[in-house]
């Protein structure tokens, strides 16, 4: 599980001099950015270029043709199959993240158009229980694959999940890796096309299943991508990891991903790919 919050929102209450304007402080370079400018840049700091995480809705806005996104299966909600009793209950954690994100689950699925091409879309929001894969995430992913099979559409997924596993769902969470991978296998058998976009962070079970099974794998610059979390690796090897370890660039150099694409160019790159393949 990884938390790399790069931006702290500064509200007017905290900085009276800012009056009605909203400002954000880049946690990488420490500079204060006018929020409107920051949003225009899709949460990329225009001073230092570092990326902040997008919500699923912002991601939809970034990637799809305006007004074309139709959400599907937003009525799937996590149950508490293990009746998880912990320091904190699963039900409480779900409620909290529903309120925080306005989402009902970590994966948002639906149909949309990108550059005029119809696609099935699956977007993992890293703000909902760290984008971890519980039963609902697995089920929605499989349903969107089945929609692809029915409509002969390409699939575009965007992954951002901290630890991959939804501990509160135990081995049921683990099995979603198998379930989603089996669904991708069906796309392959039926000659369908799958573009997987990796964003910060894509780790654990999400990385080790559908995220890395794209026919084409794109990644945003500087994203943390890998299997084991950096802290776990550091505990194992008892030393600090070198800078840049497990980043998009690191994986690109090792042949694990096709292209590193800047956020502002993502839609265009996907459109060009769809234009060749369709």
């Amino acid at each position: 599980m990884i938390f790399r919050k790069r931006y702290a929102r500064i509200t007017p209450r905290e900085t009276p001099e800012a009056k009605k304007e909203l400002w954000v402080k880049c946690e990488r370079c420490g500079r204060i950015v006018y929020e409107k400018k920051w949003k225009e840049m899709w949460k990329v700091c225009h001073y230092c270029g570092s990326y902040s995480r997008l919500t699923a809705l912002e991601r939809i806005e970034l990637l799809t043709d305006p007004g074309t996104f139709q959400e599907r299966w937003s009525n799937l909600i996590s149950a508490d199959p293990l009746e998880f009793v912990g320091a904190r209950s699963y039900v409480d954690k779900l409620k909290e993240d529903m309120l925080k994100t306005g989402l009902k689950e970590a994966l948002v699925t639906g149909e949309a158009k990108i550059g005029g091409f119809p696609v099935a879309l699956a977007i993992l929001d890293p703000h909902f229980i760290m984008g971890s894969m519980g039963s609902v995430v697995g089920e929605k992913f499989v349903r969107i694959c089945e929609l692809c099979l029915e409509k002969k559409w390409p699939l575009v997924s965007v992954s951002g999940g901290g630890g991959g596993a939804r501990m509160y769902e135990g081995a049921l969470s683990l099995m979603q890796m198998a379930k989603t991978s089996a669904a991708v296998e069906r796309l392959h058998r039926n000659g369908l096309f799958y573009i997987s976009v990796l964003t910060d962070p894509t780790m654990g079970g999400v990385a080790a299943s559908f995220a890395f099974l794209g026919d084409i794998i794109l990644a945003e610059p500087g994203a943390l991508i890998g299997f084991a979390g950096p802290r776990v690796i550091e505990q194992t090897i008892r030393q600090k990891l070198p800078p840049g370890f497990q980043t998009s660039e690191f994986l690109y150099q090792r042949g694990m991903i096709d292209l590193i694409v800047e956020r502002k160019d993502l839609k265009q790159t996907i459109t060009r790919l769809l234009n060749i393949i369709h």
Binding site: M177, A178, S181, A182, V184, E185, H188, M203, G204, A207, A208, S209, F210, A211, F212, L213, I225, G226, F227, A228, V232, I233, T236, I237, L241, F245, Q246, L251, R254, M256
Partner: peptide, 21 residues
């Protein structure tokens, strides 16, 4: 799965994902 640097360098997540598929 082995959580060391070599595993990440050689694509641990990809290796597992591709086995599942």
């Amino acid at each position: 799965a082995n959580p060391d640097m070599a595993a990440e360098e050689r694509g641990q997540a990809l290796a597992i994902a591709s086995n599942l598929q």
